[in-house]
Amino acid sequence: MLRKSIFFGLLFLAATFQLQAQGCVAIRHFSSCVGNSLENNLLNKGDFQIGTNYRYFKSFRHFRGTEEEPDRLSNNTEVINHSHSWDFFATYAISNRLFTSLTIPTVINTRSSLYEHGREERNTTYSRGLADIRFGFGYWLFDLEKYPNGNLALGLGVKLPTGDFNASDIFYNVGPEGEPQTRPVDQSIQPGDGGFGLTLDFQLYQKLANNLFSYASGFYLINPRETNGTRTFRETLSPILQNEAIMAVPDQYSARVGVSYTISPTISASLGGRFDCVPVKDFIGGNEGFRRPGNVLSVDPGLSYMKSNFTVNLNVPFAVRRDRPQSITDRQTEELTGEPRNGDAAFSDYVVNLGISYRFSNNKIKLNPELKNTFNREESK
Results as ranks from 00 to 15, higher is better:
T162C: 13
E120F: 05
Y92K: 08
F137R: 00
L114I: 08
E116L: 06
F88V: 15
Q181A: 09
W86N: 10
A90P: 02
A93M: 06
G118C: 00
N76K: 12
F135W: 10
Y92W: 14
G129M: 07
D87F: 08
F135K: 01
L141K: 08
N81M: 06
V158H: 09
I170C: 05
N75S: 15
A153P: 01
R97K: 15
H82L: 01
D71S: 14
V79M: 11
S168R: 11
R134Q: 15
S113P: 09
T106S: 12
G175R: 05
L73I: 14
S127H: 05
F165R: 02
P148R: 02
V79T: 09
D132C: 13
G163E: 04
T106V: 14
P105C: 10
S85E: 12
G175L: 09
Y147N: 15
F88R: 13
T66V: 13
Y115L: 09
S74E: 15
E116K: 08
G163C: 02
N149I: 06
E68S: 14
R72L: 07
N81V: 01
E69Q: 12
T66H: 09
D132H: 10
T91W: 10
E179F: 05
R111M: 06
T125P: 01
R122Q: 03
V174K: 04
G118P: 02
Y172E: 03
G157E: 08
S168L: 05
L141N: 12
E78K: 03
L160Y: 14
W140S: 02
G155V: 02
L98Y: 01
V174E: 00
D164N: 14
G136Q: 03
K146D: 12
N173G: 02
I104E: 07
E116I: 02
L130K: 05
S127T: 02
W140A: 03
E78F: 12
E179S: 07
E68H: 10
I104M: 14
G150L: 02
T66L: 09
V174W: 01
F165D: 02
E69T: 08
E67A: 07
I108Y: 14
A93H: 02
V107C: 06
N96P: 05
D164W: 01
T91N: 08
F171H: 08
P161S: 10
V174Q: 01
N109G: 03
G65C: 06
S112F: 00
I94P: 07
R119H: 11
P161A: 05
Y126V: 04
R134G: 04
I80D: 04
F171M: 10
